[in-house]
Write a protein that binds this DNA or RNA. Structure first.
Length: 346
DNA sequence: AATATCATCCGTCAACGATT
DNA sequence: AATCGTTGACGGATGATATT
């Protein structure tokens, strides 16, 4: 199998896993091409329910957000309202003696005969296929429903995207990352903090104080870091037109703050305010800087997004486990009640 | 041991919604 | 309208495991 094909296979499996164990689509009636983006918003409780389709109880909606209420029609014709998957365990939840096949309203059939044939109005389809909320939102809503599920904080306090050891220090105004994964935080008072990323517990954080306080000239906020210089050092440019030079030798990195008297090493991109750009070369450098900044941000965002997704999937998996246990208990309870009833009738 | 396959992670791009 | 954050999709890299 080619690598590409293998990936398709893996991703298909992941998508199936998502659909079966996470999303639990009831009937596939919503024609979703990407398999993930649409059905998270398919909350049965939010739609009118003109027609019904058979589904299994285990897949009766994720109930994200406020507890989604699913209308369940019993074989006897009686209808009951069943909360979505997200609910606190209850002592007794017997709602149907035949819980393996109940009937739940579906979205695609909720719009009339024409759309039940799979012809969905483009606007409607657009709404259905609209982007689902972020994992942060989803998980926070899950958390609000079930105690014990940790919330994802809006403000990143312990997330991996922030440099370790820096969060506990003085609040920095700017954080820059070097090509080697190190972070430089520049606090308001001019203190420079350098930390090694990814080194858990490593005493990599060092604080340096700039020697000439004073507001940096406007437009002199240096964002980019230098590649390793020819002399084996690494240089970072900080506000105030100063340069932080990292020595490349030794186990303990050393840093010095120098005036940028030397020529810039190759690869350094100096940022400047857009108003000060004149030559095409400066414009190109500005564009390059912006692009690299965007890539860096997106890199971190992708990491964070994946972390949230993992957390979200874990949350759902644990919920599945809980519900399986709950379901088992209900079945047992049902059997017990059946026995009691049959013994009474005898 | 060499090769193939699997599993996972990561960076990037593009599209989208939300915000300014 | 511009900008930003989020996330699916894609492809590459890498380590683990199975097969030859």
């Amino acid at each position: 199998m080619s690598k590409c094909g293998r990936k398709k296979y893996i991703k298909t499996n992941l998508r199936q896993m998502t659909m079966e164990t996470v999303e639990s689509r009831q009937d596939g009636s919503v024609a979703d091409t990407d398999g993930e983006s649409a059905h998270m918003q398919s909350q049965p409780g939010q739609n009118s329910i003109p027609t019904l389709a058979q589904v299994s109880v285990a897949g009766s909606g994720t109930g994200r957000g406020s507890p989604a209420v699913t209308l369940v029609q019993l074989p006897s014709g009686q209808t009951v309202h069943v909360q979505g998957v997200i609910q606190t365990p209850q002592p007794s939840l017997i709602q149907s003696p035949q819980i393996q096949t109940v009937q739940v309203a579906t979205i695609a059939e909720a719009d009339g005969s024409a759309e039940s044939d799979g012809v969905i109005d483009s606007h409607k389809r657009r709404e259905i296929l609209s982007r689902r909320p972020s994992y942060r939102k989803i998980l926070n809503e899950l958390s609000s429903d079930v105690p014990g599920v940790p919330k994802i904080e809006e403000e990143k306090s312990e997330e991996e995207g922030t440099p370790p050891n820096i969060a506990a220090m003085a609040v920095p105004t700017s954080i820059y990352q070097t090509s080697t994964g190190q972070y430089i935080a520049i606090a308001q008072g001019g203190a420079i903090q350098i930390s090694n990323a990814g080194s858990d517990g490593a005493p990599g954080l060092q604080a340096l104080t700039m020697t000439n306080p004073g507001a940096p000239p406007p437009g002199a906020t240096i964002v980019q870091y230098a590649a390793q210089a020819a002399d084996g050092t690494q240089r970072f440019f900080v506000p105030g037109s100063q340069v932080v030079v990292q020595a490349a030798t030794g186990d303990m990195p050393t840093y010095q703050i120098r005036a940028p008297t030397t020529t810039l090493p190759q690869g350094v991109v100096m940022a400047a305010s857009p108003g000060s750009l004149h030559s095409p070369q400066q414009l190109a450098e500005e564009a390059t800087r912006k692009r690299e900044l965007r890539l860096m941000k997106n890199r971190e965002a992708a990491k964070e997004c994946r972390r949230r997704k993992k957390e979200y999937v874990k949350c759902l998996e644990s919920r599945v486990a809980v519900l399986e246990v709950q379901n088992k208990k209900l079945i047992e309870e049902l059997e017990t009640l059946k026995d009691i009833c049959s013994s009474k009738t005898d």
